[in-house]
Design a protein around this nucleic acid. Structure first.
Length: 566
RNA sequence: GCCCCGAUGGUGUAGUUUGGAUAACACAUGGGACUGCGGAUCCCAUUCCCCGGGUUCAAAUCCCGGUCGGGGCACCA
């Protein structure tokens, strides 16, 4: 809705600018003034004009204002020093906006772009830990955001079934006689993580065993030993199943799980290497590699191990070419430790293959106070443990606030609140920020996400209590919103623009801020304005209903559900 | 050593890409609102742009040089 209004203001400004002889850049946007007393939309265009006219910006602003033909939706336009500010006519605008908001509010028109978004892609050698989950939460929220902004999005999880890690687990099973189901842990992925830890320890203590692991890799890559294939596949499938369970519990779903082995079996990796060879990009020493020093990358890109088996990086290249066939844009969410290899891939795509390189969004790590997490060393906090703990705390909180609710009623709400708290906690941080994980920070959620969910629950309660069918109500013709109502309306109106801005910038964390602002504004309104029993009860019920919808849709971007009571 | 990120109230962060008006949010601390359409709420107070230069009418934001913190530099993924 703001789009439309902004466009009208910009048009009016442009018409005024037409009356000057000076040419200035017409590609400008409007800002939000710092205070509502200063209006709803502000332009700094006077500064640009001042340069040409050689007078003071204040005079230019005054002059501009006198030349503006004000569109109907505005009440007035006024100069404040050098700023030209527009004031919305809220008696007209509010009605228009509230009648416009429905369940799909925030959904922008379809854009002709299909995005293949890869996220999470954690190695299937143990459970998801809180380092991985930053990738998942960011990736999933971004997918939701982009969809809302009109893009078509397909999410993929790249399953590393051929890596050394999996071979080490297989070694533990076939050579050390370890059994997955005998390991500690509730879930199969946790058990696999334990087994990996043990097998890895054994190999680290006796380096000669690395030979054996390499043999396993070689055999699996050849794929001729049916029994061995089954062991590999069984480990990977089980672990992925466990990871999926964790992801689903936190509202994260992928459209497809692509196994890297596919690109060995279907010959894509071989034909890619052959192409590099044929075009003369390959250098041969102990191994075959591509020299990238010409492109300012010190590290050579190794194509195969000396025993001929493939490497992750080569398989990844094949995978990315595959993804490029599925959509217009290939987007990866990666930890900052992948920066170098992502740079290599970019150069290979652009300079050697002459194809569009994948886009990458990097995030910095979550570490424990004692250092980085490591599945190999068994040093990590699993997402399952974190979620369990969050739900336990939420349960206690609900119990103390609603003693009359039964356990069956509490359980689903506790799940919504606990998971919301975690997703919100991770999502609110911008990706380039490093985070040191502390239990208390992650779980002190009473006033974080929960207060937003609470605002939603409050709105639901209120609408229910009115006993009215909201759809049948109409807005009072004489209604002019007061300051608190205006505030809330402004925020509701801003939502589509927030969606668009965040999607363009690929920044999810600003949504969390918006949610807090919106809930805060709703709470203020709720506190001081009576709804039921007021002279404009119907109008206010409609406002409450639209605020409720907007909160719900905004939380949905973050994968956080909005409970109707809590 | 080379490369990449970060530094904003007591704490944790947003704002930096696109320079504009009084730097936003949450927590913490201290005070207040108390039977309300559920207080997981609201109001008030306190406290911030790492340092040094430069560009500009205007710098948290851009440029140069430092300091401190995190990460990367595998025949790992």
């Amino acid at each position: 809705m703001y789009f439309e209004i902004e466009k009208q203001a910009i048009n009016a400004l442009n018409k005024a600018l037409d009356q000057y002889d000076e040419e200035i850049d017409r590609d400008f946007r409007l800002d939000f003034p710092p205070d509502q007393k200063l209006g709803d939309l502000a332009s700094t265009i006077a500064f640009a004009l001042t340069k040409k006219l050689k007078t003071s910006p204040n005079l230019v602003a005054e002059d501009l204002v006198s030349k503006i033909e004000l569109p109907e939706i505005f009440k007035k336009v006024q100069a404040f020093g050098p700023y030209v500010n527009f004031f919305i006519d809220y008696s007209k605008f509010s009605k228009k906006l509230l009648n416009h908001v429905d369940e799909n509010y925030g959904q922008l028109p379809k854009v002709d772009e299909k995005i293949i978004l890869e996220h999470t892609s954690a190695n299937p050698n143990g459970p998801l830990h809180i380092g991985h989950v930053r990738n998942s939460i960011f990736g999933d929220s971004l997918a939701r955001l982009l969809k809302l902004a009109g893009r078509e999005v397909e999410t993929q999880y790249y399953v590393n079934d051929m890596g050394r890690q999996i071979a080490i687990i297989v070694y533990g099973i076939t050579e050390m006689g370890l059994k997955i189901e005998e390991q500690e842990g509730d879930k199969i992925d946790a058990k696999i993580g334990k087994l990996y830890y043990k097998a890895n320890k054994e190999i680290e203590e006796n380096k000669d065993l690395n030979e054996k692991v390499s043999e396993l890799i070689e055999k699996y890559e050849k794929g001729e030993d049916e029994n061995l294939n089954k062991v590999f596949e069984n480990v990977v499938q089980n672990c992925v199943d466990g990871i999926k369970e964790t992801l689903h519990r936190t509202n994260i779903y992928h459209d497809d799980f692509v196994w890297e082995g596919k690109f060995i079996r279907n010959g894509d990796v071989d034909s890619l290497v052959n192409y590099f060879e044929k075009e003369g990009f390959v250098s041969h020493e102990e191994v075959d590699y591509i020299d990238l020093t010409f492109y300012n990358i010190e590290k050579e890109f190794v194509l195969r191990r000396s025993n001929g088996t493939s490497l992750y990086s080569t398989r990844d290249l094949a995978y990315h070419r595959y993804k490029a066939t599925l959509g217009d844009t290939v987007l990866d969410i990666l930890g900052s430790d992948h920066k170098l290899s992502a740079k290599q891939i970019k150069v290979i795509f652009e300079e050697i293959l002459r194809e569009k390189a994948p886009e990458v969004i990097f995030y910095e790590f979550i570490t424990l106070p004692e250092g980085s997490m490591s599945t190999r060393k068994g040093k990590f906090v699993s997402v399952d443990d974190l979620v369990d703990e969050a739900v336990i705390r939420a349960t206690e909180e609900i119990k103390s606030r609603n003693p009359d609710l039964s356990n069956d009623e509490i359980a689903p709400i506790a799940e919504e609140i606990g998971i919301g708290a975690i997703r919100f906690f991770i999502a609110k941080l911008s990706p380039e920020k490093h985070l040191t994980f502390k239990w208390d920070d992650a779980l002190s959620f009473e006033r974080g996400c929960a207060s937003i969910q609470y605002a939603h629950a409050r709105a639901c309660k209120l609408l229910n209590k009115s006993g009215k069918d909201i759809k049948s109500l109409t807005i009072d013709d004489d209604w002019t919103p007061n300051e608190l109502e205006k505030d809330l309306i402004r925020l509701i109106a801003k939502f589509p623009q927030v969606v668009e801005d965040c999607a363009n910038k690929q920044r999810v964390h600003n949504i969390t801020q918006y949610c807090q602002d919106l809930a805060g504004s709703f709470n203020k309104f709720y506190k001081s304005e009576q709804v039921i029993g007021s002279e404009i009860e119907d109008t206010r019920l409609i406002l409450v209903d639209r605020a409720k919808i907007t909160i719900k849709n905004a939380l949905d971007i973050l994968g956080v559900s909005a409970p109707e009571k809590m």
